[in-house]
Design a protein around this nucleic acid. Structure first.
Lengths: 232, 232
DNA sequence: CCAGCCGCTTGACATTTATCAAGGCGCGGT
DNA sequence: ACCGCGCCTTGATAAATGTCAAGCGGCTGG
């Protein structure tokens, strides 16, 4: 791992307030590895031996049951995933695979648990982080239970626009098939949902989406901070 | 609050390892109050001034958006709710109301945050608790995204049976309307879902449900620890 | 360059879920 | 006891979502 990457990780709110020595101790026994696209990093049910951090690329977190599969979330640099399993020393609840060629840092779970008992500032940071993660999942659940597929798509597009400079032109960050799974619909349904949003100024051309009438789209989508604001 | 209640709360894994003095300091400025049934304790969006703990009765956590409302979970004695909002000092994501006459302990948020920075064992316990909560919500999301309404009901009945001594006879712990909302269906649909499960030995009479063929029901429901095991 | 695969879209259709309406039943209040 | 309300069920119907099949078009590997 290059020192530049090490420092990016160190800047995560989880690690920012650790001493450099403690952080280097935490990293002892870690692996920094580059993976090709579409490689399974974690299988749900496996023991949580490592905390994973995406340094570069992107990782899909997904679950299966019987013959269904669904995407729970996408982890982008620089962020951790499957933190809770590591803390509880419990099996992973989700599987993970790379979307693209990706660089992943893997820190042994026992280092994390050790650092928590050694360093109370670290465990405080961990409390903050977990509380934030918890709230994100609760928001995702509200999104699922309270909204229809089309409404989820509309709100997703508004969120994406905010991510991408509010220009009214967004680029879907991954294939539509995956987006469909994230929004809990079939690819066929996603196509139709885009068509449904046409009257609200949504024009799709491959991965490029133009939002020509943000006011109307917002009136339709009715976003609320208590579901859609990531900082809330 | 009676000393008996105080000691029950003290036995929660969150507080168990605190000193008695620290615990009493935590409780300074707390309220212990009895509420009638169907009283709103918390409204989503409000600032999180208190950590709530159900001592007796039951509390429904629910959310609204536009004209929909849905139940996220039920808090039963002795347990906390809305922990994450308290920690982040952020608005509540859910509303809460009593199901029945209930006793609630309310601890000022700042006491909690103070105790976390004072007592590293407490912040470690908090990390454990939040990780467990996080995993619960993730499981709920898997349940929602991967299963149909009937499948959710079947698995709920199996879970209830495990809660109630595996006798093959369970009593629904609240009205069906609420169960429907928890399982993300309409009351009409829940009725029909029960009818669908009849061939698997499910016989309903008001709140009493007989599971006359657990093997068949299990074959249908296909429970998995990674969704259904609360201890996992 | 071409063949084949894969992602995406569209249409037809099936299934699931929601909505609307009506009626039975039990319970609490008068 | 009886009324009235709210819960629950059932039926009819509508809307949302999923499935199956076909076809387009871009990308890739031979």
């Amino acid at each position: 791992m290059r020192p530049e990457n090490r420092n990016q990780v160190k800047e995560l709110s989880l690690f920012r307030r650790m001493s450099d020595e403690a952080f280097d101790r935490l990293l002892a026994g870690s692996f920094f590895q580059r993976f090709p696209a579409h490689v399974v990093l974690i299988r749900e049910g496996d023991p949580a031996d490592f905390l994973h951090i995406v340094i570069d690329g992107g990782v899909e977190l997904f679950c299966s049951w019987r013959d269904h599969e669904t995407t729970i979330s996408i982890a982008r640099p620089i962020s951790t995933f499957i933190l809770a399993a590591v803390i509880k020393d419990a099996p992973y609840l989700m599987s993970a695979r790379t979307l693209e060629p990706s660089s992943i840092l893997m820190i042994p779970s026992k280092n994390i648990r050790q650092a928590m008992s050694d360093d109370s500032a670290f465990s405080l940071a961990m409390v903050e982080e977990l509380a934030a993660c918890f709230r994100e999942v609760v928001k995702a659940q509200k999104n699922l239970k309270l909204r229809s597929g089309v409404e989820r798509l509309a709100n997703y597009l508004l969120w994406l626009d905010a991510e991408q400079q509010n220009s009214g032109r967004v680029t879907l960050p991954f294939e539509k098939k995956l987006l469909a799974s994230l929004l809990n619909m079939t690819p066929e349904n996603l196509s139709r949902a885009f068509a449904t949003l046409k009257p609200y100024g949504v024009a799709v051309s491959a991965a490029e989406v133009e939002l020509k009438n943000l006011d109307d789209l917002r009136r339709f989508a009715k976003p609320t901070p208590l579901i859609d604001d990531p900082k809330c």
